[in-house]
Design a protein around this nucleic acid. Structure first.
Lengths: 332, 332
DNA sequence: TTGAAAGCGTTACCAT
DNA sequence: ATGGTAACGCTTTCAA
């Protein structure tokens, strides 16, 4: 797998590498005739510029790094796909890494990407992450970083949805359907996303004069098993909930599973609404009412924000993509 | 974002770069004292080796490329996640690209990866792809390439499942459940995966003495819409099928949708079985009987095969990961 | 119009 | 034990 370099072409033609370099990039200072010869031979020999040599020369890699908590989770897979498409369109390559929701992995990914001299990093922090100092340090050194999906207030540009408001809408719709004992199933309280969504939930309860019951709020970890045990506990309470708001796709699945395995019906006994992918909602019976997030838009805006920073705009911007409730059959 | 090089360290300490280089890599030829000084200063200044310089020097990048038809599709997302984990474990970085099931995109991805000097490529061809000459050409030049999931016979190592046999099992189970007019819903006939699965289906019918009805076989394209219109046509036949075998997750979804929108029940009127993710099957009502594929194993073995090639083993190996039918409630 | 040489950051080899 | 230098592939600047 011998690679052809400009030198090979130059040798073949008995000219200097610098001449070849100029010819191949269409700079002037090369006779039309020689230029043509060089182009033809380059084509014929299958010359490809060595991007590492170019990067070394310019200290520019045309590569960005992405860190997600779980590429195999739909939500992220769709966003990543969109980012990748946008990036490619802008001439950037993506290096995608997966933290598996672990803070330590995330730190490793981050260092790896920085070492790889990516020109910027797009990251959705793991659910364990509480320390953002490395990201802040990078930003301080004008290294481009954009957060998405989970966006704590750490002075870094981000793209997220209207977490609080969408949760408020969802809760209101449960109340409208007659629910009075509404449970909230969320991830860790360290995550601003969790507290924001919970905030919206609490606001709705307060606005509608529904008493807040601490035992109906379960915020532990984002995983099917954790969600399942929490949901099981909820349904085993002396006064079980008549509705559940779940703040993550896995928790929605867990809630459904718990409800049906308790022999209860959705929505007759327990309504369910949650944050999940549209097409997954389409598959369930009954279809779950959900907060629809525009993943294309999130991916697109996230990349745009990063590109902006790469091009020198250092302003911190918090972009909010509006998500809205879509009612299906899992609520009354 | 000034990057620290060995030269900076050398200057600071009044020594030569080559000494710094040796010290940092723990080679001998450096006094313990100086070594210690260099390490400390390097740490303090935040030195990171420039991978592009290293790559340029060695023509080795410790990077592999992955091309998938659709990262946002579960099946691929899970395999990619596994490949990424294996690769990281072996010190390799992944560049993941998405062909969006388009042959042209795929060719672009491929060239991009080759230009990036990845050390090997893992690829699942798009459903449009019929021309494998570029891959064969790369292999002839001893460039490592491994196919997965869709593995045509083109003399390139691959990892796939027992397509024909699993389809045979699935068909047999439908017959066991009393189905006699079994439809096959597949992707394009250009894909060996399609023809293999169809072959298994036909074998089962023949073995059990069930007449083969050409009008019950629909092999067009892998997409929800195409599957939906095919399934609709099937159900509108004078003698509609009493069972459907779908060869892709999207086609399973399409089949379900078509059946319910025809006011028919699963499995009472039409049984459904297909190739899909376990957890998606878990969500549907009734849960769809499916061919379980071990995605972790597929990812893992695929990377191993590539690593083998990178290390110089040029033998063509066709690895088959056994998939087996799991019965749920969508079949009788 | 073309050539020669320096430089990007690193490593390897040969001197000292 | 340490220094000097060439080389990887490419671009740029200056000289011819």
């Amino acid at each position: 797998m011998k690679r052809i370099s400009q030198r090979d072409i130059a040798r073949q033609l008995g000219v200097n590498v610098s001449t070849v370099s100029r010819a191949l990039r269409g700079l002037d200072g090369v006779s039309a005739e020689l230029k043509q010869q060089i182009e033809q031979l380059s084509e014929q020999m299958g010359y490809r510029p060595n991007p590492f040599a170019v990067s070394l020369r310019y200290d520019t890699t045309h590569t960005i790094g992405i860190v997600v908590p779980d590429v195999s989770f739909n939500h992220y897979a769709h966003i990543v796909k969109r980012i990748e498409a946008e990036a490619r369109n802008a001439g950037y390559m993506c290096i995608i890494t997966d933290s598996d929701e672990k803070q330590k992995n995330e730190a490793d990914c981050l260092e790896w990407l920085v070492n790889m001299h990516v020109e910027g990093i797009i990251i959705c922090p793991s659910q364990e992450t509480t320390d953002f100092s490395r990201l802040q340090q990078l930003r301080k050194a004008h290294f481009p970083v954009v957060l998405f999906d989970r966006a704590p207030d750490v002075g870094i540009s981000s793209v997220s949805i209207n977490d609080s408001d969408s949760a408020r809408q969802a809760t209101n719709s449960l109340i409208d359907g007659g629910a009075r004992r509404i449970a909230f199933l969320g991830g860790s309280n360290q995550m601003k996303q969790t507290t924001d969504r919970k905030h919206g939930y609490l606001v709705a309860l307060r606005e509608r004069g529904i008493p807040i019951r601490p035992e109906l709020v379960k915020c532990h970890s984002i995983s099917f098993n954790s969600g399942l045990s929490d949901a099981m506990e909820l349904l085993s309470l002396p006064e079980p909930p008549d509705a559940i708001l779940a703040s993550h796709g896995l928790l929605v699945n867990a809630a459904m599973h718990a409800v049906t395995s308790h022999g209860l019906r959705i929505p007759d006994d327990v309504s369910i609404v949650g944050y999940m992918s549209d097409w997954v909602s389409e598959l369930t019976t009954p279809r779950i009412s959900f907060v629809r997030q525009n993943l294309r838009e999130i991916g697109c805006k996230t990349f745009r924000l990063l590109l902006d920073q790469i091009r020198g705009n250092d302003n911190v911007q918090q972009v909010v993509v509006k998500a809205r409730l879509e009612l299906r059959e899992s609520t009354r």
